[in-house]
Amino acid sequence: MSDITFGQYYPSDSVLHRLDPRFKIIITLILVVSMFLCNSVVSMAFAAICTFIFIFLSKVPFLTYLKNTKPIIPVILLTFILNLIYVPGEHVLFNVWKFSVTTEAIQTAVFIAIRIILLVIVTSFLTYTTTPTALTGAIEDLLKWLKVFKVDVHTMSMMMSIALRFIPTLIDEINKIINAQKARGAEFDSGNVIKKLKAMVPILIPLFISSFRRAYELANAMECRCYNGGKGRTKMKTMHASLKDYFALLIAIAVIAGCIAFNYIKIGGLY
């Protein structure tokens, strides 16, 4: 369980690490939208190439990105198979039992699989190159306008960053509790689904109790460090939009424009 990398910062000193986090969020959103927009071979290839360039620029090892796609392999396989047998088409290649597999189906299935993988990579690119604090700070800044509607944006972003901070701590704690319960003779690996779910109760209850205790202590510690809500608070790392941020945004816009434009280029019988 300790190899959960999603939402973890990968320290490095790349161009992407130095970008303004607010811009990075917007750029990521643009890239996600472009992934959904491309539906021709050329535009999908274009999106993939752009994604690989981003990976290269982030100086985060490619394997680290792949690790993130591992947990969603079942999802990819499932959608792939479903698309393969359910998408209707004219060019029937072969028949399996009641289902017929068409060239269109193969294409759609492959497209969606690639799209999911690219989406995961693009979103993890954001979390790898941005510290959770910077990320929540950026979200706070981007959602500033919500204050008009009396939404406490600062508290929300503080809650988010604390939640992210405590994920590894709580995972450690779960492992400790599991070991402690195993030492008392609890079984987690045997029995049917219902039995396994029931076995989770002695893990969750101690976890909840200790989380409340942690929360109380953390609140005390935060108070001792003069935390008083967002009022009059400054930031060590201020966010400055510079030329390179606008340039990066321009590139993202170019990518989305490219994805749309390349949709109109068709190669052979493929759409």
């Binding site: 959770p132 960053s161 604390i162 901070r165 701590t169 202590e217 460090r225 060590m236």
Partner: peptide, 11 residues
Amino acid sequence: DNQIVASIVEE
């Protein structure tokens, strides 16, 4: 563990 607020030491 219960008095460290941020996910990066310097922050």
